[in-house]
């Protein structure tokens, strides 16, 4: 009887970290977001670059549970994704916008169906986090598209780079 209690407590203790871990979500990004190939070259003397380029990028974002057991025990977790940029070598005349071009896919065969909202219209990404989209449970490979505008030949030949930061928050 004593040993049953002991092992019961031990098992309970074992599940504490799983439960704690169950509150955790992570965000992963895969793909490429290089606008250089989308830049339409200046073909005629006297021209400037066309001011806006759209990049149907092959960039995908996944919101996943840190702990795999949550897909069973805590499948309906709500979350929201915020986005901001952190400039490395950037020009203040640039405007970068992002939108979600698809719903993504289920993380695995026993995960519930995809439940995702907002973020389908272009919205500007600034240096302060802004709400992007929200969803429930893990969703993999949500495709994103970007639009870059405001560049000109007057900026000179240069490599511009910024870092897009996606943050996932619990609940919405």
């Amino acid at each position: 009887m004593m040993s049953l209690k002991k092992y019961g407590s031990l098992m309970l203790l074992l599940f504490v970290p799983f439960w704690v871990a169950g509150q955790q979500l992570k965000v992963e990004i895969e793909g490429d977001a290089n606008f250089s190939n989308s830049l339409i070259p200046v073909r005629e003397a006297g021209e400037d670059y066309s001011s806006t380029i759209e990049h149907e990028s092959s960039l995908y974002i996944s919101v996943l549970y840190v702990n795999y057991f949550d897909y069973w025990f805590n499948p309906n977790k709500k979350w929201s994704v915020y986005v901001h940029k952190s400039d490395i070598e950037w020009n203040s005349d640039f405007t970068i916008k992002a939108r979600r071009t698809g719903n993504g896919s289920r993380v695995n065969w026993f995960a519930p169906g995809v439940n995702i909202h907002d973020g389908t219209n272009y919205q500007e990404i600034s240096n302060n986090p802004v709400y992007f989209f929200r969803g429930r449970h893990g969703i993999a490979y949500i495709p994103l598209s970007f639009q870059l505008s405001g560049f000109s030949v007057t900026m000179g030949a240069k490599d511009f780079e910024t870092s897009l930061v996606f943050t996932v928050y619990d609940d919405w």
């Binding site: 979500l25 952190s86 897009l164």
Partner: peptide, 26 residues
Amino acid sequence: PVFTTGQERQADHKVNIEIPEVALLG
């Protein structure tokens, strides 16, 4: 699971554009 909770809730990705040198006259 404690180790696995060390994952980031944030991920970043570089976006870049290269403006090349150009010299056109007409």
